[in-house]
Design a protein around this nucleic acid. Sequence first.
DNA 1: TTACAAATCGGAATGATTACGATATGATAT
DNA 2: ATATCATATCGTAATCATTCCGATTTGTAA
Lengths: 137, 137
Amino acid sequence: MNTSKAIELLKKKGYKTTGKRKDILTFFDDADGYRTAKELIQHLETIHDGISFDTIYRNLHLYHEMGILELTELNGEKHFRMSCTHHHHHHFICKDCGKTKDIDVCPMDEVKKTLVNYSIEDHKFEIYGLCPACQTA
Amino acid sequence: MNTSKAIELLKKKGYKTTGKRKDILTFFDDADGYRTAKELIQHLETIHDGISFDTIYRNLHLYHEMGILELTELNGEKHFRMSCTHHHHHHFICKDCGKTKDIDVCPMDEVKKTLVNYSIEDHKFEIYGLCPACQTA
DNA sequence: TTACAAATCGGAATGATTACGATATGATAT
DNA sequence: ATATCATATCGTAATCATTCCGATTTGTAA
């Protein structure tokens, strides 16, 4: 997913493509990893006079529901990143910079065999640590 | 992990074994799944006149740091359960009742090969859905 | 360019968690 | 048993992320 695809999607679904909405998308497009609502607010405040919590959180939810953003909870805070729309995979997440590395291994096929009477709605497989760049820093 | 082992551990480390601490342990011992601070408070209020947030959260942190409790974040809330001290494994977690089922599959050995210059500190593999009992309810 | 639904604003409310000074209480030595 | 004292708890206020709401503004379609 990227900014222009997301804007197409907004238009197709009848949502308005406002300046703020575009700015939020380019923020995540540039981010290349997980970012918090707070980081987004700090960024938007540098280019807009006033920005409401309402605008931030409403659009984060909208984007998440539309599949534009992925969500994970770390340290009591929600973190968002641009959705990976190609093949199914998971992430290594750097605790310092939030950047991610794709992990192509997914054991769900094997796991499903052991959960015959369970209804599976979702799963999460994440690896946490420091990326090479943040280790030397 | 269970209540009596945890109490031993507390004594060995020089922590006091108070009534509240024991009650918290038996709550999780009986719970057989993930529980929130709120659920713990509600339980403790039925057997004690007044219970402070401070006591709840301080002990939850202590138990987590000591390896007595495991922690996961769901829906903006921290959830705790008795640690599984036997072999390494992961969990299916029921969204309704919080009960868990062990998942013995762990793909970390394979994953580590693809993260040669990364320092891995932790990983999470969880499956969410409804357990058989909660599906029929 | 007008009209109107949708989006945003500003700020108050909520819910989980943390912080803190005052008080109470296990554990140890007497 | 009792006194001592560090540790634990209390009660409540503060903090932090997030949600909510009435009033105002702004894309968009006609």
